[in-house]
Computed example of a mutant assay.
Amino acid sequence: MDGRLIYLMGPSGSGKDSLIEAARTPLQSIDCEVVRRVITRSAESVGEDAIGVSHEAFERRRQAGEFALSWNANGLDYGIPIQIDHWLKEGRQVLVNGSRGHLAEALQRYPTLLPVLLTVKEEVLRERLLRRNRESLAQIEERLRRNALFTASDSVGDVQIYRLDNSGKLAITVQNLLKLIAFSVEPDRT
């Protein structure tokens, strides 16, 4: 039996990287692989535990078929290594840090994926983005506007998007993620 892809999404500043790091050991204990993305930014960038490559190296990898999924967002290229297909075939669950804008394409390749949207109250998100000091005020407001548009939907087609609020304590969000994975019922999509 094939495993299941858990597709974690959320706006910049929602705490995806913190959640993934905090949940890493408990996820591994339930035979769930946590994937490191390949990103076209330096490995020294603060935040996600990712593999940083140049745009040229990323394109070479993409052309060589090294990515199961890839996309461009906010001027960066993101790739999910093809190794996830092997883990899924082995029956393992696999957690990826995905893109909200790429969800429809991911569903085409992995129709049984579990889409999980990490949400955070707007005022908490604004404060986190300001604290990071990576973007201008105008860029932060644009991110907040885009986030409001995306979070208005509870589904993509007939696929429900599961929501996790990360406005409070991270430990509670970790517990809720583990419960969601353990108790998610595979919908019949035939």
Score class of each variant (00 low, 15 high):
Arg134Phe: 08
Glu127Gln: 12
Arg128Ile: 09
Leu76Ser: 04
Glu122Lys: 14
Thr151Tyr: 07
Leu95Cys: 06
Asp77Pro: 00
Asn147Thr: 12
Ile140Asn: 01
Asn97Val: 14
Leu113Ala: 08
Leu117Lys: 12
Ile140Phe: 07
Ser99Arg: 02
Ser155Lys: 13
Gln108Asp: 13
Val96Lys: 12
Lys121Tyr: 07
Gly79Asn: 07
Ile140Gly: 02
Arg132Ile: 10
Leu129Trp: 03
Ala138Cys: 01
Asn147Gln: 12
Lys121Thr: 10
Arg126Trp: 09
Leu114Pro: 03
Glu90Phe: 05
Ser155Glu: 12
Ile84Ser: 09
Glu135Lys: 01
Val96Phe: 06
Asp85Trp: 09
Ser136Thr: 10
Ser136Asp: 01
Trp87Val: 10
Arg109Met: 10
Gly98Asn: 06
Tyr78Ile: 06
Arg128Ser: 05
Val156Tyr: 01
Glu141Cys: 06
Tyr78Cys: 07
Arg145Val: 03
Arg145Met: 05
Gln93Thr: 15
Leu144Val: 05
Thr151Arg: 11
Arg146Ser: 04
Val96Glu: 03
Glu122Asp: 14
Arg126Leu: 10
Pro115Lys: 02
Leu107Glu: 01
Arg143Lys: 11
His86Ser: 15
Leu117Glu: 05
Leu88Gln: 09
Gln108Tyr: 05
Leu118Val: 09
Ile84Ala: 15
Ser153Gly: 10
Val116Pro: 00
Leu118Tyr: 05
Val94Asn: 07
Leu76Thr: 07
Arg134Ile: 07
Glu127Phe: 07
Thr119Asn: 04
Glu127Ser: 14
Gln93Lys: 15
Trp87Pro: 00
Gln108Val: 11
Asp77Cys: 12
Arg132Trp: 02
Gly101Ile: 14
Gln83Glu: 15
Thr112Lys: 10
Leu88Thr: 13
Ala104Ser: 10
Val120Asn: 00
Tyr78Met: 10
Val120Lys: 03
Gln93Trp: 08
Ile82Arg: 15
Pro115Asn: 03
Leu113Gly: 05
His86Ala: 15
Asn147Leu: 03
Arg145Ser: 13
Arg143Ala: 02
Leu114Gly: 05
Asn133Phe: 02
Gln108Phe: 02
Ser99Pro: 00
Glu90Thr: 02
Gln93Val: 07
Gly101Ser: 10
Leu95His: 04
Leu118Cys: 01
Leu103Arg: 01
Val124Trp: 05
Ala152Phe: 08
Tyr78Gln: 07
Gly98Pro: 09
Glu122Ala: 12
Leu117Gln: 10
Leu107Asn: 01
Thr119Leu: 13
Phe150Ala: 04
Thr151Glu: 15
Leu144Tyr: 08
Pro111Arg: 12
Leu76Ile: 11
Arg109Cys: 10
Leu103Gln: 00
Pro111Met: 14
Leu114His: 12
Val156Ile: 14
Gln108Gly: 07
Leu144Thr: 09
Leu137Thr: 06
Glu142Gly: 04
Gly101Lys: 04
Ser153Cys: 11
Leu113Tyr: 10
Leu117Arg: 15
Leu95Pro: 00
Arg134Asp: 01
Ala148Glu: 07
Glu127Met: 11
His86Pro: 01
Arg145Gln: 13
Ser136Trp: 01
Arg92Glu: 05
Val120Cys: 12
Leu149Thr: 12
Ala106Gln: 06
Ala152Leu: 15
Arg128Met: 07
Leu76Trp: 08
Glu122Pro: 09
Leu95Ala: 01
Pro115Met: 03
Glu141Tyr: 04
Glu142Val: 00
Ala148Trp: 01
Arg92Phe: 11
Ala104Leu: 09
Leu144His: 05
Leu117Ala: 06
Ala152Val: 11
Gly79Ile: 11
Glu122Gly: 03
Arg143His: 08
Gln93Pro: 00
